[in-house]
């Protein structure tokens, strides 16, 4: 029998397991603290007025953030409008031509795009849209957010389609169904859940983004549905109000944080529901 230091080995084993356990569980503390503060300061602010009214000028109490809620919806909608179809088509391309050299470069571009800091995307949207139009606008914010959503949707579409059995495509082609109809009417519906998951992931990724909106959507105290005008959004409002010296605004900021986090968590719950149905 080879002699090994069994007690020491066991101690090391237990110790490593304990450390892994400890560090993993420790992470719950900051999460709890953050959620505690957001709920404590934000829940009290929630009211019908908060959700449906416009902000009041400094010094007056009350008021709401309806413009930011509507703005966030518009910005996310604008972003989805281009990035979802474009992401789906690029995803189909990657899954169909995945082994060609071009496709490898395209995939690298998508992955790199995903890694570009949001503030840089903001600069680019500023140069492309704000400078061209001559002023800040909702559309420029939509462009910035769209660029951030695109890689998420592309990669999840690719993953989804790759998982669909090849025989399904062959079955359709063997019936004399043209290739484009096979992809659009057989493959896409089969992968609908996965693609939907990707879209929802993309939306929850950009719904909380502030940096790319700082000098594109810019923010506005008014209700606005004109996409060529500056527009408010929840994250922008949180940034402006939390760094303001007015306690009244800071309170609204906590309320908006609570609302934004709830929205994003709900989105991820829906995403999970969709994924499970697969």
């Amino acid at each position: 029998m080879i002699k090994t230091n069994m007690p020491l080995r066991m101690v090391k084993d237990k110790a490593s397991q304990g450390l892994v356990f400890l560090f993993s569980v420790l992470l719950a503390i900051p999460l709890m603290v953050i959620l505690f503060y957001v709920v404590k300061n934000g829940l009290g602010v929630m009211s019908w007025t908060f959700l449906t009214h416009l902000p009041k000028p400094v010094g007056e109490s009350g008021g709401g953030i309806s413009n930011a809620i509507v703005g966030t919806l518009i910005l996310v909608g604008l972003a989805s409008l281009v990035s979802i179809p474009m992401g789906i088509f690029t995803g189909i391309y990657l899954s169909e031509y995945g082994n060609t050299k071009t496709a490898k470069y395209v995939r690298l571009c998508v992955e790199v795009l995903q890694g570009i800091p949001s503030i840089v995307i903001g600069i680019v949207a500023y140069v492309w849209v704000v400078v061209t139009l001559g002023h800040f606008s909702a559309i420029s914010g939509g462009v910035a957010l769209g660029m951030m959503m695109l890689p998420v949707i592309t990669l999840s579409t690719e993953e989804t389609i790759k998982l669909i059995p090849k025989t399904l495509k062959e079955a359709s082609l063997a019936l004399g169904v043209p290739y484009y109809r096979t992809m659009l009417s057989v493959i896409l519906p089969t992968g609908l859940n996965g693609i939907l998951t990707g879209a929802l992931l993309g939306i929850s990724r950009v719904a909380g983004e502030t940096a790319p909106l700082l000098f594109t959507a810019f923010g506005s105290p008014f209700m606005n549905a004109n996409i060529t005008k500056p527009i408010q959004s929840l994250p922008l409002l949180i940034f402006n109000y939390s760094t303001s010296p007015y306690e009244e605004w800071q309170k609204l900021g906590w309320g908006a944080s609570f609302l934004l986090i709830s929205m994003i968590f709900c989105l991820s719950l829906i995403t999970k529901g969709v994924t499970r149905k697969r």
Binding site: P165, V177, T190, L192
Partner: peptide, 23 residues
């Protein structure tokens, strides 16, 4: 084909008609 491959998103009825409907 070797493995049965009905279209999973379609009913039996639509599967039989798939050749027509998809075309």
């Amino acid at each position: 084909f070797q493995r049965p491959n009905p279209f999973p998103t379609m009913s039996i009825y639509d599967n039989v008609l798939a050749g027509y409907q998809l075309n």
